[in-house]
Nucleic acid binder design. Structure first.
Lengths: 346, 346
DNA sequence: CTGAAAGCGCTTACAG
DNA sequence: CTGAAAGCGCTTACAG
């Protein structure tokens, strides 16, 4: 008799499901994985058993056979803490679902980057995920590609041969600009992000293009360069609010700079949103920390992380079975989130 | 001949290590897991092979035998986004290392909490991790305990019979208070957190006790109640800075409120840290986003998450093998992080 | 102290 | 369309 005593009572396995449905474990497995080559009635019986028994597949068991021992590296440099946290959340969640292991390395300059890559490779990673801003470094991408390591870039401009997951920064920025125009703002300041980031360039370009479409053009001093940091946002916002004829709205290229702009406005006694609309981009946790809460463009950062892992796993499986996949470029949906920091122009 | 072709070349298994070292897989396993009952020379040979082959254990394989199919639920309500993100990071990392699955449920009031618990249980979780503020709800703890579900509380006051992981809020607050005194501040404002949170009470008490020790007592209007939110920090900080004889330092019970205090100070034209020292508690990402960067007490939130999972897994294993463990109360180390928002009293 | 056997839960590859 | 067999990588429980 098998020892069932030390067994957890509620641990329903696929064998239990199969027995309950009166089929072989294989058939149960097929139904559970959505394989269409199963007869209608067996399928229904298995599905019923899954429901009744509240079966949940054990991912360790599954991944042992499928992905084998996939290991994914994440190489990052100089990130926004909040963004990286959220991204890692998605990466870990998905890899836990898929039974993959995740190794993380941080690097600074190009030398330390090589060392970090080396460490990841020695640890046996099958591929590397590159969050911004590393995803924007052609050199990094080339080096990894030359070594034959699969790469998935998160954000950044699509590069031939390298899979990527991102949102459409251009359309996101366009949506925000249209929203500000709808609110009746005609004097809109813009704080740009780090010019070396593709996302910063796209957000700026969309802003300018969308205004031009509406026949509007901002005076040059309404366009200020920031670096995506809070500190740079302070300086930039001060510049804008010190103008003689100052804007009635400020579009900041990310939330951190928007937080800074709000602090400066506050300091100058300018009330938000009555006298000044401030909007951001990203919807990081700071957006709902601030008061008034920040109107911004939501990036599904966690989902970006999840999909990056899924893409990577497909790539790894393909390579293991000797196939070659085309690089995939996945664009995820952004959302305009209206909160209390924006209002109609007065 | 076994098909080795579709095999990933770098996938070193424990069998490779064993063969390379000339021992059985069992001995290799023992060495790798630090089991002391292995002879000196076999141990060394295995360790050398691990090095040479750059062996990394496959966690899916391991967890299949050890934890079995452990599933851990996380039940949270009304969290600080940044704190929860970081905690989840640790939870997911550790559970991925241990091959456990994580299910997350959010809840609001007590009714929705029951429903969420029910969903977790139906999904077959073996135990539930309770982040703040749920860890402070005796009712929640009791209900879970009555159903016989293992619980690990993150933060909160230690409760008999319920394992917990936390930092010593009292000592952390004491360290910060001593630091402010060292800097020569004698007029220190204090913004308290949500009074229903144990951590808020402890931080406040330590502040008062430590001052008393030094023979100091602040005027009543220097103690202001906040709610741990940015918004409440704005109000509280305004109160403090509007005082005729205002403090030279403000100790905020968390970083979000410190961010608010800095914004208000900024608004009032009070320079930080020259004219005003502002310090926080937690070291969430916002602390390094602000300018000047925030002096604060670092909570190892990610590590708290990791350890909560580790504790939970021990508990689950113990129960499965019919043993009963005493509840463990783990206190992790905090650190005073000195940044640019604090300076000597002028 | 060391090892041969068995099995964790699942799915791949083969056979019908 | 369905199933019996084998094995993913590891460790538990048993034997010596």
């Amino acid at each position: 008799m098998p020892k069932r005593e030390s067994q957890k009572p509620g641990a329903v396995t696929i064998l239990d499901v199969a027995k309950h449905a009166g089929v072989s474990p294989m058939t149960a497995s097929r139904v559970i994985n959505g394989n269409p080559r199963v007869g209608q009635d067996l399928r229904e019986r298995v599905q019923a058993s899954v429901q009744t028994l509240r079966y949940r597949p054990n991912l360790a068991g599954r991944s042992l056979r499928t992905t084998g021992s996939a290991r994914i590296g994440v190489l990052y440099s100089n990130p926004s803490a909040a963004y990286l946290n959220e991204l890692m959340l998605g990466i870990l969640e998905q890899s836990s679902l898929s039974g993959a292991q995740v190794l993380v390395e941080k690097c600074g300059g190009i030398a330390s980057q090589r060392a970090a890559t080396q460490r990841l490779l020695e640890a046996g990673v099958d591929g590397i995920i590159l969050p911004p801003p590393l995803c924007d470094s052609p050199q990094t991408l080339r080096e990894l590609d030359e070594r034959g390591i699969p790469v998935v870039a998160v954000a950044g401009a699509p590069v031939a041969g390298v899979s990527s997951v991102r949102i459409d920064d251009y359309q996101g920025s366009r949506a925000m600009t249209l929203y500000l125009l709808e609110l009746g703002h005609t004097r809109i300041g813009f704080i740009q992000g780090d010019p070396s980031h593709t996302s910063a360039q796209l957000r700026r370009q969309a802003f300018l293009d969308t205004l031009a479409e509406s026949g509007l053009r901002m005076p040059e001093e309404y366009m200020v360069v920031g670096m995506f940091t809070y500190r740079s946002g302070l300086t930039a916002a001060r510049q804008l609010l010190d103008l003689e004829r100052r804007p009635t709205a400020i579009f900041c290229s990310n939330d951190d700079m928007a937080a800074a702009a709000m602090a400066v406005a506050h300091g100058a006694g300018v009330r938000i949103p009555d006298a000044l609309t401030v909007v951001g981009f990203d919807d990081t946790p700071v957006a709902t920390t601030l008061w008034p809460e920040l109107t911004t463009i939501r990036q599904p950062v966690t989902a970006l992380g999840k999909n990056a892992v899924a893409l990577m796993l497909e790539e790894i499986r393909a390579r293991r079975s000797g196939r070659r996949r085309e690089a995939t470029h996945q664009v995820m949906k952004h959302t305009l989130i209206k909160r209390q920091s924006s209002a109609a122009a007065s």
